[in-house]
């Protein structure tokens, strides 16, 4: 990744032009032609730096209810627990972390009832005693904007 890639990424993260020719617009700002902009983005998608270019929705505004949750499982059962948790399309993020609890995941469900259904299924299929739930109270920031 070179300086030009970083400049493109910065624009993609913060200021995607809502224009009929967005990549030309990005190129104009960065002194590049559209073909180079597109081929650089394509390369960053291919090598995994970029995983998506498009709109990000506010799940709450769409009537969805999100929740961060955590469980603790023995090291040897992490893979199995991950499989149980990941089976739900509503689970968007799932990480193994150092410490206790060691599995942290997010659920975005279309209703609270559905959310609880997912939690209780995870509980029974993994055999954990409890799921710690951390629903958001106040959002200060959600934005990955790195250089």
């Amino acid at each position: 990744m070179d300086e030009k890639d970083r400049e493109i990424l910065q624009m993609l993260q913060g200021r995607f032009p809502l224009d009929s020719e967005p990549y030309t617009k990005i190129g104009d700002k960065l002194w590049m032609d559209e073909v180079s902009v597109i081929s650089r983005i394509a390369r960053m998608i291919e090598n995994g730096t970029i995983r998506y270019v498009g709109p990000f929705f506010d799940s709450r505004k769409l009537g969805y209810t999100g929740c961060l949750a955590a469980i603790n499982v023995p090291e040897a059962e992490i893979e199995k627990a991950a499989e149980v948790i990941n089976q739900f399309a509503e689970v968007t993020h799932n990480y193994q972390r150092k410490g206790e609890p060691n599995i942290w995941f997010t659920v975005i469900a279309s209703s609270e009832a559905r959310r609880e259904e997912i939690f209780s299924q995870i509980k029974s299929e993994t055999g954990v005693k409890e799921i710690l739930k951390f629903p958001a109270k106040k959002l200060f920031k959600v934005k990955v904007d790195l250089d």
Binding site: L9, L12, Q13, F16, I50, R51, V53, P55, F57, L62
Partner: peptide, 9 residues
């Protein structure tokens, strides 16, 4: 409804 438009890295 849309928080932002752009890339996820």
């Amino acid at each position: 409804i849309i928080r932002r438009i752009g890339a996820a890295v």
